[in-house]
């Protein structure tokens, strides 16, 4: 009888805990699986990227993936705009026309580039511009020094109603 009581208590405690965890995980999955609203903004967007240095292959790159590591990467809201596999020269502007993926509200442009290790005493930067229908809406530079990768995120807000109300 006592043994049955022990087993019953054990089943109630463990079963209750299991039920709670399963229920909590299901709720989390439902939240993450919720379909996001399509917030894409109509318009003609152009991104320009200009490094203050000539890019070079990063000797400290992770090389475990199949593709080679590009010396310059540009992403908009987490989506690749470009992984530039060729060397980009100092002052050379890369222009990406008809960029899609700008959202209403918060946006991010991520840029990463590998400057030459031999120029480690210099500060290096990558200037990023975003145009909407020929109007400059973002103009910022990501800086790095001491030989580090130039890597950073530029945030801006886009309001579909108010033209030109962007955070810089």
């Amino acid at each position: 009888m006592r043994f049955l009581l022990v087993v019953t208590i054990w089943v109630v405690i463990v079963g209750g805990l299991w039920g709670y965890i399963a229920d909590r995980d299901t709720r989390r999955q439902q939240i993450t699986a919720a379909t996001p609203m399509d917030l894409s903004v109509e318009g003609r967007f152009v991104i320009e990227v200009t490094p203050t240095f000539s890019t070079e292959k990063d000797p400290f790159a992770l090389t475990t993936s199949d593709s080679s590591v590009p010396p310059l990467t540009v992403k908009l809201n987490g989506m690749y705009i470009d992984t530039h596999t060729q060397e980009v020269l100092r002052g050379q502007t890369l222009r990406y026309e008809d960029v899609s993926g700008v959202l209403s509200g918060h946006n991010e442009i991520y840029v990463s580039a590998s400057p030459p290790l031999s120029e480690n005493t210099l500060e290096h930067g990558v200037r990023v511009k975003l145009y909407e229908d020929s109007t400059l809406v973002v103009d910022q530079t990501v800086w790095a020094d001491q030989g580090a990768l130039v890597s950073g995120t530029i945030s801006f807000n886009h309001s579909a109603d108010e033209e030109g109300s962007h955070d810089h």
Partner: peptide
């Protein structure tokens, strides 16, 4: 593993650069 390695590799890059500055 790749994410941790990426962080460590960037630290190595900065270390390399720092050593050059110090030796200079």
């Amino acid at each position: 593993y790749e994410a941790r390695a990426t962080l460590f590799l960037q630290q190595l890059r900065v270390l390399d650069s720092w050593v050059r500055q110090q030796i200079n």
